[in-house]
Computed example of a mutant assay.
Amino acid sequence: MSEQPKLDCPDCEDGVSRRDFVRKMTGLAVAGSLVPLAAGSRRALAAPTPKSTAETAVKRFYDSLSDTQRKEICFPFDHKLRHNISANWPITKAKIDDYSKDQQVILDEIFRSVTSPDGYDRFQKQMDDDSGGFSEYHVAVFGTPGSGQFEWEMTGRHLTIRADGDSVANAAFGGPIVYGHGAGDGKKGLPGNVFYYQTLKANEVFNALDGKQRKAALLTEAPKETDVLVQGSAGAFPGLSVGDLSSDQKALVESVLKVILAPYREEDVEEALTLQKEGGGLDALHMAFYQAEDLGDDQVWDIWRIESPTVVCHFRGAPHVHAYLNIAKKA
């Protein structure tokens, strides 16, 4: 495997090497307040179940594990590792390449099943570029698959993704997820980046605003990228109120949400949209763009954020993409 180029991003440099794994686990920054990461009563909405394709594959993977493997990657459901959120970290020491070929096939099946066809292809490109491929990523299992309390999680450089069978109540995707891509690092337009299209879509909203609206939407400095706490109805949200926009402008914001969710499986998307509506829908959203780190000084704003009582999407597109998505109902 060829060595990957080093990119100038402190968040990316933090926590991917095996030698740093033990240090990272002892110094783990737990962000338990991000969502109510605990089992609760089920709700009547479209969501994954223990019988969904990914979740049944998780059970087959769990059943295939040796006693030694289970000791290394299986944890109680409420273990602190499940609450961590980062753009770059190994949730367990073993890489996917360390599993048997049959187990690797199941892991690919799980990953394929929690993504859309287009999302699967984008993530494959991202993983190839950023870490040398899918085989370089890490997985963990929390709880007992097939029960009402379990979650599979996969992490690594620029990726955190989950399958929980709706074990985590009132939270889409089983909790906060992360995506990103290092391609085009520091260059205008992020050439080759598989997620730059999302910035272009978000900027369609900005371009449709009038002068007064742009003044409300365009802020100077963005909050910390990992500040993705779901605030609930009492929260304070930066930027422009989508509820004050025209119907055409609201439609553009809705199209951004659809683009953000498009890489993921339909069941998770439906749950996310239901929670978004429960938080007030489009009218409750705020959208902000940030002047900081404007690559190429082209006023195509590379850092932007969408937030409501139940939605946080923080997209940091400079020097490359780190994006955090948390859609949940505050406990």
Results as ranks from 00 to 15, higher is better:
residue 169 A to F: 06
residue 74 C to P: 05
residue 302 D to K: 01
residue 19 R to P: 00
residue 15 G to I: 01
residue 319 P to I: 00
residue 183 A to Y: 09
residue 133 G to E: 03
residue 257 L to G: 14
residue 56 T to A: 15
residue 83 H to F: 13
residue 69 Q to A: 04
residue 85 I to Q: 09
residue 203 N to V: 14
residue 130 D to S: 04
residue 223 P to F: 06
residue 30 V to D: 08
residue 294 D to E: 01
residue 312 V to A: 05
residue 252 L to S: 02
residue 118 D to R: 14
residue 128 D to Y: 01
residue 315 F to C: 08
residue 274 T to V: 13
residue 33 S to G: 08
residue 113 S to F: 06
residue 266 E to A: 04
residue 52 S to Q: 06
residue 235 G to M: 00
residue 67 D to Q: 07
residue 75 F to W: 10
residue 92 T to C: 04
residue 284 A to K: 00
residue 184 G to H: 04
residue 327 I to R: 09
residue 151 E to G: 15
residue 142 F to L: 07
residue 304 W to N: 06
residue 5 P to N: 11
residue 153 E to K: 12
residue 328 A to S: 14
residue 242 V to N: 00
residue 171 A to T: 15
residue 195 F to Y: 13
residue 38 A to W: 06
residue 67 D to V: 10
residue 59 K to T: 11
residue 291 Q to H: 05
residue 71 K to F: 06
residue 240 L to C: 00
residue 241 S to L: 10
residue 198 Q to R: 08
residue 177 I to G: 08
residue 249 Q to I: 01
residue 170 N to S: 09
residue 275 L to P: 09
residue 170 N to P: 02
residue 291 Q to C: 04
residue 22 V to M: 13
residue 10 P to L: 12
residue 41 S to A: 13
residue 29 A to Q: 13
residue 301 W to R: 13
residue 164 D to M: 02
residue 198 Q to G: 08
residue 250 K to D: 01
residue 111 F to K: 04
residue 269 V to T: 13
residue 208 A to Y: 02
residue 16 V to Y: 14
residue 178 V to Q: 01
residue 76 P to K: 03
residue 61 F to W: 12
residue 222 A to I: 08
residue 243 G to Q: 03
residue 204 E to M: 10
residue 2 S to P: 14
residue 149 Q to D: 14
residue 226 T to V: 12
residue 242 V to C: 02
residue 105 V to A: 09
residue 172 A to Q: 05
residue 253 V to M: 02
residue 46 A to V: 09
residue 236 A to N: 14
